[in-house]
């Protein structure tokens, strides 16, 4: 439908007037109208976020345990492999501390992407029955990753306390720079949703997309300074690492929390701009394919 009509038909669902006219036509909602509609349905974000998180742990026997264990177990493994066995440098910090902070930021993407990819598929029951802006689903889909992120923060504090007792040194920083950590988190989430908006469309059509994503993000992690610090990369090669839009936010996050490495100002600005533009393009793509996506459910 044309944009004005789309707005009118969105209005019939939301507006105060009971008898607004509406039209249903083959032409799909324009992007601006879709964004406006997204806003008017924003309450559903929390609804689906909660639903997706609950559904994920509902059938587990040890729900609360897995909430902690799922993020924590791979952490232990990675610390042993990269820190203890391979002896990767960590900018003078205990490797576990160094890795945990980087991984907290990275895992938003790795875990979040999978959840966002599955978001439309997992809510097929409702989506097939009821109209609401489908755009809500990928945005709500990142919720489990946020929950994981909060668990990581908790682990971070616990680990810092352990080192405080053991070494008498408190590694975590406080202060206004934490705002930059928050910003980096936000940018990573946006990137996750940006990629997820595309992958979720394909997931509905080809169920194997989720497998590909699992391997792909595992590989992507090594292109990002998560297990290694930027100081290990020759300065002349930094630009190559920062071609990866997730490098700068992860590095920024670690700089803000631990005070190691440098704040990559220019890469961060470029990555941010790139990620925002990319997410808008993804959202347009998602919006355009949403009609046929629902047909495939």
């Amino acid at each position: 439908m044309s944009q004005s009509e789309a707005a009118a038909s969105a209005g019939h669902l939301t507006g105060a007037g009971d008898l607004q006219p509406w039209v249903i036509e083959p032409i799909q909602t324009g992007f601006i109208a879709a964004v406006r509609e997204f806003w008017s349905y924003r309450r559903l974000l929390m609804f689906f976020a909660r639903k997706i998180v609950v559904e994920r742990y509902k059938k587990t026997t040890l729900g609360g345990f897995w909430l902690i264990a799922r993020p924590a177990l791979p952490l232990v493994l990675n610390v042993i492999i990269f820190g203890a066995i391979l002896g990767v440098a960590s900018d003078g910090l205990p490797y576990a501390m160094f890795f945990l902070v980087g991984a907290s930021a990275w895992m938003i993407f790795q875990r979040g992407l999978l959840r966002v990819t599955l978001s439309v598929d997992s809510q097929a029951g409702l989506a097939k029955k009821l109209y609401f802006p489908r755009l809500i689903l990928p945005f709500a889909g990142i919720a489990p990753a946020i929950v994981d992120f909060l668990v990581y923060i908790l682990l971070m504090i616990v680990l810092a306390l352990i080192y405080l007792v053991k070494d008498g040194h408190w590694y975590l920083l406080f202060g206004p720079r934490l705002l930059l950590a928050l910003y980096a988190t936000f940018i990573i989430m946006l990137m996750t949703i940006g990629v997820g908006l595309i992958t979720t469309v394909y997931q509905v059509r080809h169920a194997e997309v989720r497998f590909v994503i699992g391997h792909f993000t595992g590989f992507w992690m090594f292109l990002t300074p998560v297990v290694y610090p930027m100081s290990q990369i020759p300065g002349s090669m930094h630009w190559a690492v920062y071609m990866n839009p997730l490098s700068a936010p992860v590095e920024t996050f670690r700089w803000a929390i631990l005070g190691v490495g440098t704040l990559p100002v220019i890469p961060l600005v470029l990555s941010s701009v790139g990620i925002v533009l990319f997410t808008v393009v993804s959202a347009v793509f998602f919006n355009r394919s949403q009609g046929s996506t629902v047909d495939e459910l």
């Binding site: 249903i24 909660r50 109209y131 009609g291």
Partner: peptide
């Protein structure tokens, strides 16, 4: 089509006011 779950390929539907789908119980409730 009328619930706007899926867009029509051709033609149009017009009406006034709110369209509500009576949902199966497990779907819309937590």
């Amino acid at each position: 089509i009328l619930a706007r779950v899926t867009p029509p390929t051709e033609g149009r539907a017009t009406g006034h006011g709110r369209v509500v789908s009576l949902l199966e119980m497990n779907a819309g409730f937590n």
